[in-house]
Design a protein around this nucleic acid. Structure first.
Lengths: 250, 250
DNA sequence: CAGTGGTCTAGACCACTAA
DNA sequence: TAGTGGTCTAGACCACTGC
């Protein structure tokens, strides 16, 4: 019943009968119109909300969602040069102009399955690794939750933040005085868990783009394991592969 | 109230008090234990379900979720050689051993925003492009929903399926008799819409990994625009970047 | 202030699963 | 068959928004 109602409303949106930005009838009105309880309408609305079809504004109404703008990050597979959006710039390990990154946790002795995997990637024992958690914001809105793992030997005094919050992450690349090479990058998607959802200000279970990867210093030893969970709707990564037989210079 | 309950149960899982696979008390029991209505418990459960923390089995009970196994696809950025899981194999444009791909829609005259974008990428007018939708399954379970756009000129008679369902997608690479080069690949994450959710047998709004991209033939002209929406929990893509100064041959 | 969505209750019936 | 989760109802109170 609620699914039928959701499908009906979705069909109206697909057909253009309900245009982006338009306010839907209130829950009570829909309940009356379709002869069902308001909770049933709410269930249909929740479905459409999760599907990204509508935007629910408390105290105001429910609106047909307008497609969102994404931040696209382009990476040249050969040179690893990155650009964000239309602006051409090198994307350092931590943050980029316009974005604010704030550390909210520094773990000296991490634990758990994810941490163990990170240590394996770094060829380190769990005790020799530290972890830094941060939140990246763009225009005052949570954009990604980040975790960085690195060997304590690399981290050394000046890298270790004094407190546990309010510290800006120092670029590992800067610390080494040399550029880092991205050995590999892994992309996946997960639903936001309770903690991530709260940090990013999104609904639990909403789609996050996960980007994990190992970077290494000039000595080719794995130096940094990064894991970002990014609000799915607001980001995408583009990897460009210049053709090896391309006439242009690489 | 429901959020507090969810947080409480999540804490029990995090602390190991509730181990993976263990059945939680029934909704009625939890309602009694916490002195709330069953619907409130259900709301908490829905939250944990969306967060991926529990698995709800109708008529059976609710269980602490066991981490899932993912299919990982590795791609060498320099050579574009792909491997799936532990088995080393070249991943053709369509399907791979163990996977079944079934066409469920062939559109001669696509429309809509996404289609227009695809046409732009292919340097074609909307009327000159065709679109093929398919569902990839692994072990009888929906794995990804795919859309392929290609110029009708390339598609030509032998490519055009006779019916609208039950046809295996012919590899475009095979059709051309030449390998395709991946010009770029874009990764993002979205929640499953009503249609995708039904096809893949997942909940509306559950995280999907989206991989889009343009491939070109030997003449370097864009020939195929692909868009896959993959169940987030069951896939990840790894891009490996061999170091340019690496001692091994590239 | 009126109207919206957010939450909670008590109670009911159902479909499904496993013993 | 007993117990589970899935759905729906009718009614209530609340917080929030915009006028």
């Amino acid at each position: 019943m609620y699914f039928e109602l959701a499908r009906e409303l979705q069909a109206r949106m697909d057909s253009g009968q309900l245009e982006p930005g338009v306010r839907l009838p209130s829950e009570s009105e829909l309940a009356a119109e379709f002869g069902v309880n308001r909770l049933t309408v709410r269930q249909a609305m929740a479905e459409l909300d999760r599907a990204g079809s509508v935007e629910i504004r408390r105290g105001v109404g429910t609106f047909v969602r307008t497609p969102v703008v994404r931040t696209t990050i382009r990476v040249d597979a050969a040179t690893q040069q990155s650009t964000v959006g239309a602006r051409a710039m090198v994307l350092p390990v931590s943050g980029w102009p316009g974005a604010v990154e704030e550390v909210f946790a520094v773990l000296d002795a991490p634990g758990g399955v994810v941490d163990r995997r990170a240590c394996d990637h770094l060829h380190c024992r769990v005790g020799d690794v530290m972890r830094i958690d941060s939140l990246t914001s763009l225009e005052g809105q949570g954009w990604s939750v980040n975790s960085y793992w690195l060997p304590k030997a690399v981290a050394s005094p000046e890298f270790r933040p004094i407190g546990s919050t309010g510290n800006v992450v120092v670029s590992v690349s800067e610390l080494l005085g040399a550029p880092l090479w991205a050995d590999w990058r892994e992309f996946s998607a997960i639903g936001a868990d309770l903690a991530d959802a709260e940090q990013l200000g999104v609904a639990t279970g909403s789609a996050l783009l996960v980007r994990e990867g190992i970077s290494s210093g000039p000595d080719a030893r794995p130096t940094l394991y990064t894991r970002r969970r990014i609000r799915g709707e607001s980001a995408s990564f583009v990897l460009e592969f210049p053709r090896p037989d391309s006439p242009e210079p690489r």
